[in-house]
Structure formats: C-alpha cells, structure tokens
C-alpha cells in the first residue's frame, strides 16, 4: 500500500476481513481491506447506506475483532478497545447520569489523572467546543448539536492518538449539521489529530477530508481513493468542490 509522504502510517489495516458467522449462514461484511492513514490526516470513509463503514470503524476501534487480517494503530496490533483511540458516536453515547463536565472528564478520571489536571483539560475542550456555562447540565437538557459537541470534547479530552467518528452529525438537522462541520474543521485545525470519519453525505465528505476512501456495498472493500486538495475552509458552492462531490457520488453509485 502507498504511504503518504515520509511518515509512517499511524493506522494500518492489512487484508482485513470481517465475517459474521451464525449456525446456518455466514455474512461477509468486510472483504480484504488494506489502508493506511498518516499522522494528522483527515480521512473520510464514504459509502452507501448499509455498507460496512461502521463495522470497519469498529474494527479500528477494537470494539469488534477482524476475522481475517490485522489492524495496527501506532505500531500496535488492535485486540481490544483502548484509550489510544477516541470514538465519537452517531448516537453520542453520552453517559446520561454524568454532567457535561462528568462526561468530558470521564476518560481521564478512569485513567487516574488527578482532579486538577483533568478538570483543566476538560474545561479547555468544553470551552473549545463552545459549551462554557453548561458544565453542570445533564445531557437530557441539551440539544442534539450540543450533545454531539460534548461527545467530541469527551473524545478529545482523553488525548487519543486517533479519533474515530461514526457519522457524528447523521442525526442532526441540515442547519446544525453545516455549523457543526465548520466547527469540527476549525477545532481540527487548532488541535490536529488523526481522524477517520465515516459518512454517507458527499458534501460533508468533501468539506472535511484530506482524502476520501470510497467503499463498496457489502462485502465492503475500498473501491477508489480521492484526494481533496482544496484550501480550507472550503466553500460548498465552489466549482472545484462541486466537481469532487460529483465524482465521488458517481463512484459511489457505481458500487451499487
């Protein structure tokens, strides 16, 4: 597989496959996926509705294990969930019984970071996602967009090597979605991390990605890779933007 620049990849998948076995039949969801993600790169996995995007992300997270091949993050083989990979969920998966602060400092607290340090760190990211003043609110008092900000701050505050985002804005209305995309981009510029972002929205893909991997329907494999070299922040109506968008949509349609 190609490596990007001189950097060694921080995420590597080697001939990864995932087949769900049941007594009567087997269901192959991911087939022979090999890919590399460089440090601080923003990679979008783009594919049709029910393809194995989320499964692929869960394999990198270690929430599921591959039935073939290997996944490496930062040189170590992934065999279980771990704090070097931060996940932002589509459903937000916030702890409903913790306040915003409690959620954001959950990871550092679990890993034994002392109270003062973790509070400062959590506060920094709460401010960065624009939630100052809501530290003591419970998630059920927040809007969808605000909840997802908490999810992002929580992942960041645990200081992971890579961020895995599973359609984080999938449930939001269009207006909030545009706003969140712009804010995520700004946040990522300020706090560079390696991001793998799953979406089925072509506009979102082109707006955020350094590189887009187009996935096929199940069994999922990488069909094509598209680099996005437009300057940031990108304009949705820019002809070059639209051209890339059309291209990835066509590529995606062909996979159906």
């Amino acid at each position: 597989m190609e490596h990007h620049g001189e950097l060694t990849p921080i995420i590597s998948l080697r001939h990864v496959g995932k087949t769900y076995m049941s007594v009567h039949r087997s269901n192959e969801v991911v087939r022979d996926v090999s890919l590399d993600v460089a440090e601080n790169e923003f990679v979008v996995l783009f594919g049709p509705g029910q393809c194995g995007k989320t499964t692929l992300l869960n394999l990198i997270a270690g929430l599921q294990l591959p039935t073939a091949g290997e996944v490496y993050v930062d040189g170590k083989k992934v065999e279980a969930p771990g704090p070097d990979r931060g996940v932002v969920y589509q459903t937000t998966a916030l702890f409903p019984f913790c306040t915003v602060m409690g959620n954001v400092e959950f990871g550092p607290k679990s890993r034994g970071v002392d109270k003062k340090t973790r509070r400062e760190r959590a506060q920094y990211f709460i401010d960065l996602v624009g939630l100052q003043g809501f530290e003591n609110s419970y998630p059920n008092r927040l809007s969808g967009g605000m909840r997802q900000r908490v999810g992002i701050a929580r992942a960041y505050a645990n200081d992971p090597k890579v961020m895995l985002m599973d359609e984080p804005f999938g449930h939001l209305d269009a207006q909030t979605r545009y706003m969140m995309e712009a804010e995520l981009e700004k946040l990522w510029q300020k706090e560079k991390r390696t991001v793998v972002f799953v979406t089925n929205n072509s506009e979102e893909a082109v707006y955020l990605a350094d590189r887009i991997l187009i996935l096929t329907n199940t069994p999922t494999h990488v069909k094509e890779e598209v680099r996005v070299d437009l300057p940031r922040p990108r304009q949705y109506s820019d002809p070059a933007f639209l051209a890339i968008r059309r291209r990835i949509e066509e590529l995606c349609d062909d996979t159906l």
Partner: peptide, 25 residues
C-alpha cells in the same frame, strides 16, 4: 446500554470502574 459500556471501555475504564460508574448508575 451496551454502547455506553463499549464507550467506557474505549475511554480506558477498568471493568471494576465500569460496574460502579456505568452499570450501577
């Protein structure tokens, strides 16, 4: 919610802490 348990694991929470900080609450 199994997703919350998975999420706590991803954040590096020990199984004992998961019981007291996720399951019980």
């Amino acid at each position: 919610d199994p997703e919350l348990v998975g999420c706590a694991r991803m954040l590096g929470t020990s199984e004992r802490d998961i019981f007291f900080r996720v399951v019980l609450p």
